[in-house]
C-alpha cells in the first residue's frame, strides 16, 4: 500500500444557505494512483473538485494534502504546492498564445527560471501532444476543444503537480480526441510521479484507467471499490438507487 497523498475526510459542502451539495464525503487518493469519480449531473462531482482545489470551503470535515490540512487555502497557493486543477470545459487563457499559457504556468517571474522550467517540461509535453509545438504561437482561444484540453494538461505538467484534479476531461470532445487525452494521461502517469483524481459523468473510459472508482449520487458516495468490480448491474444500482 503506497502512501496517501490526498484525503477528503467527512466533508460537507454547500452554497449559501441551501442544503449541502456534498454530505460527509470521504475519499482517499494514494501516491501514484488514479481514482475515478463518476455520477450523474448534480451528484456533486464538480463541487468535490472545487472543494479540493480550494475554491469552496467545507462546512464540516477536512481536506488533507500530504498529511496537512488544506481547507480554506487559496487556490493559487494550493496550485503552487502541487494540487493542480483542470476545470470543467477545457478552460484555458484564451486571449494568450499556447506558449504564453505554458510560460505563465511556471509560477515564476525570473526569466531564467521560467526558461529552465519550460525546457525541462517541453520534451514531455511535445512528446504527448506534438500539435502544441506546431501551434505554440497561436491564440489558445482559436484552438479546438480537444487542443485546448491538451494545452490544459500541458499547462498542468508545467506546474509540477503532485495531485492532478481533472474535472470531466472528456466533456464535449469527440471520441477520438478523448482516446488521445486518456492515452496521454496514462503516459503521464508512467513518467511523472503523481496521483490523479478524475471526475467523469460517464464511466466508459475512466474504468479502464483507474484502480478505484467512486460513484456519487445526491452528494453521497453510493459505491466505492476497485474499478474492475463495477459491472453494469452495480453501476445501474449505484446511479439509480
Amino acid at each position: 500500500m503506497s502512501a496517501t497523498v490526498l484525503e477528503v475526510r467527512d466533508v460537507t459542502v454547500g452554497y449559501g444557505k441551501n442544503e449541502p451539495v456534498l454530505h460527509d464525503i470521504s475519499i482517499v487518493l494514494a501516491q501514484g494512483t488514479i481514482l475515478g469519480v463518476v455520477g450523474m449531473n448534480g451528484a456533486g462531482k464538480s463541487t468535490l473538485m472545487r472543494t479540493v482545489a480550494g475554491m469552496l470551503t467545507p462546512r464540516a470535515g477536512e481536506v488533507l494534502f500530504e498529511g496537512r490540512r488544506i481547507n480554506g487555502r487559496h487556490t493559487a497557493e494550493l496550485a503552487r504546492r502541487g494540487v493542480v486543477l483542470l476545470p470543467e470545459g477545457h478552460r484555458v487563457l484564451r486571449p494568450l498564445t499556447v506558449r504564453e499559457n505554458l510560460r505563465i504556468a511556471t509560477m515564476s517571474l525570473a526569466p531564467r527560471k521560467v526558461r529552465k522550467r519550460v525546457s525541462e517540461a517541453e520534451g514531455l509535453i511535445y512528446e504527448l501532444f506534438p500539435i502544441l509545438e506546431r501551434r505554440s504561437s497561436q491564440l489558445a482561444g482559436l484552438m479546438s476543444g480537444g487542443e485546448q484540453q491538451m494545452l490544459s494538461i500541458a499547462r498542468a505538467i508545467m506546474q509540477r503537480p503532485k495531485v492532478l484534479l481533472l474535472d470531466e476531461p472528456s466533456l464535449g470532445l469527440a471520441p477520438r480526441v478523448i482516446g488521445e487525452i486518456y492515452a496521454a494521461l496514462g503516459r503521464l502517469r508512467e513518467t511523472a510521479d503523481l496521483a490523479m483524481l478524475i471526475v467523469e459523468q460517464n464511466s466508459d473510459r475512466l474504468a479502464a484507467h483507474c484502480e478505484e472508482l467512486v460513484v456519487l449520487r445526491d452528494g453521497k458516495v453510493s459505491w466505492v471499490g476497485p474499478s474492475r468490480e463495477l459491472n453494469a448491474d452495480r453501476l445501474h444500482a449505484a446511479y439509480f438507487g
Binding site: D204, A208, A232
Partner: peptide, 9 residues
Amino acid sequence: ISAYLGVPG
C-alpha cells in the same frame, strides 16, 4: 445507457 452511463470495462 451508453450516452448517460457508459458501459464499464
